[in-house]
Amino acid sequence: MKQIIQYIEDHNISEEEVAQAAHMSLRNLRRQIHSKNRTQVRIVLLLADKQNQSIDSIFFDEMNNQPISLEGLTINQIQDIIKLVHPELFMGVTRSKKIKDYNYNLETDMGDRMRFIREVVFSLSQTEFGKYMEVSRNTSKYWDEGQINVDKIFKISQSTNISMDFIIRDHYPLTLQTQGMSEALYLAVMTSCVLYRLRNAGSVK
């Protein structure tokens, strides 16, 4: 992928060192990073951790604002925030008013994180999410199983603003990357998050 190649060049990182750390041959590493759809998750994790940077910062250079954490918000509140950012994902889809009680391992299972994004954050079926992402239902099903490469995660993040770090990293909170967000939208989302957290804190007392 061009973003990874550029990142390696800009930071003067040795491809040999990355290949060794990823436990793969230099030839295999080069084949992956020069491919449009074969780059494995562990490569970008290694690069980001080596430079102590977020994965989002490798791929998005138009983020003028800090990422927005949705940690501590209810599912309904998260959906309201997402509706502000991507209202098109909530148009023309019939949804149950009752949030389903799914069981997800968000801490250590990338497939569950993908399924959580589709089923809970956007309340979309595999067919609907596949259609939005311009892939087949079967491809969406593979994503739910964690069978997904970096180029597709990048495309999903571009299309939904869900942080690549949340999708890829274990033990990372649900977060929005702000690429493409106007200043007005960013402030609206941040304000909503603050108000929701204040409301949630008040309901605990």
Rank of each mutant, 00 (worst) to 15 (best):
Q53M: 10
L29D: 10
E16W: 11
R115D: 11
Q177P: 05
M133Y: 05
L84M: 10
I81G: 02
R113P: 11
R118C: 14
Q79F: 07
S182L: 06
I99H: 12
L84G: 09
A21G: 02
L84S: 09
E15V: 03
M63A: 08
L29V: 03
I153N: 00
N37P: 04
H86E: 07
S35A: 10
G72N: 05
M133A: 05
T191F: 03
F90Q: 06
I58D: 00
L187H: 13
N105T: 03
E119N: 14
L198A: 11
E17N: 15
N200C: 08
S54C: 06
M190C: 00
R197E: 11
L29C: 08
K100S: 15
K131C: 09
T74A: 14
S57I: 00
R115E: 09
S96E: 15
V194G: 01
S163P: 09
G72K: 06
S157P: 01
N65S: 12
Y132A: 12
L176V: 00
I162G: 08
M1V: 01
Q158P: 02
K97C: 13
L84T: 03
V121I: 06
E145N: 12
R118W: 11
D49E: 13
N65T: 03
I43C: 05
R31Q: 11
A48M: 01
D109H: 11
E88R: 04
K36Y: 10
I99E: 15
Q179T: 07
R31G: 12
E62A: 10
Q79L: 11
S25H: 03
S182I: 00
M110E: 13
R38S: 13
N52V: 05
T139S: 12
Q126T: 00
Y142T: 06
K100L: 15
E9R: 09
Y132V: 07
G146V: 00
R95F: 12
Q32H: 14
E15P: 10
T178F: 07
